[in-house]
């Protein structure tokens, strides 16, 4: 029997699951592709699923499989994959002001992917403190399980799925830019933010178009910060930071 005190936690957990649903549109098709590619590179289905469960970082998993299949030295594979994931170091500190004391955060940090971070950074300030752990648990577990499930689907039936419904792989990934747009839209509150965010978006778009996918996020984000300071040199934007 569930006590009354458990309900707020449970509803927060479910709210996290509900609000992370749009992530599935981006995660599952990419995870299916990963499962398929890993099988083609010579990994077994269970090895492929283990990689998605333990590493849980899309771009670096593709790089890992590609480099291993190409016969690259393992020390180089480890360094390159960790370099790609280095952008994650700024996610935790950004969320820290809203983290309530809980022994679960160290375990939950495994699920701090790009998309979960973006969602949490927007939602945490709006959530009551006692609901944040529950909300994050729900969102993080849904995203993690969808990544593992998508990988399994790709590993066991990827080739057939892709040939039967090729449009799904084309259309569903648009859920990610749509989600990022909804998270960003409320932040366009002043000329300074419009220019800074616009610069980061444009720079990342151009870098990705030129094949520099892995450099795009940190480089474009740094450029956006630079623009923010250049638009109003010497003036503090403290009043706008929480917009």
């Amino acid at each position: 029997m569930i006590s009354d005190a458990a309900y707020p936690h449970r509803s927060a957990w479910l709210a996290g699951v509900r609000e992370a649903l749009p992530l599935l549109g981006g995660y599952i098709p990419v995870a299916i592709s990963f499962g398929l590619i890993a099988i083609q590179a010579g990994f077994s289905a269970w090895e492929t699923i283990a990689i998605s469960t333990l590493v849980y970082a899309g771009a670096s998993q593709f790089l890992f499989v590609g480099m291993v299949a190409a016969g690259a030295p393992l020390w180089l594979v480890v360094i390159m994959t960790l370099l790609i994931n280095a952008r994650h170091v700024v996610y935790g500190p950004n969320l820290a002001p809203w983290l309530t004391p809980s022994r679960w955060w160290p375990w939950l940090a495994h699920g701090l992917t790009d998309q979960v971070f973006a969602l949490a950074l927007t939602r945490f300030p709006q959530l009551p403190a006692n609901e944040r752990v529950g909300w994050f648990t729900g969102a993080m577990l849904l995203a993690w399980f969808s990544w593992i499930g998508g990988t399994a689907l790709g590993a066991f039936a990827g080739a057939e799925l892709m040939s039967r419904w090729p449009l799904l792989g084309e259309v569903l990934p648009f859920a990610l830019p749509a989600l990022f747009l909804v998270l960003l839209a409320p932040r366009f509150t002043s000329r300074q933010w419009v220019i800074a965010l616009g610069s980061a978006i444009t720079a990342s778009l151009l870098l990705t178009l030129n094949g520099l996918n892995n450099a795009a996020i940190p480089t474009a984000a740094a450029l956006g910060c630079l623009c923010f300071y250049l638009v109003k040199p010497g003036e503090k934007a403290g009043a706008e930071r929480n917009a």
């Binding site: 700024v90 830019p177 996020i217």
Partner: peptide
Amino acid sequence: QWLSLLGPMMIAAMFGGSL
């Protein structure tokens, strides 16, 4: 301040790349 700016800028960069 640079750290609290970096969060939204990372989201903007992810948005640009995913477009």
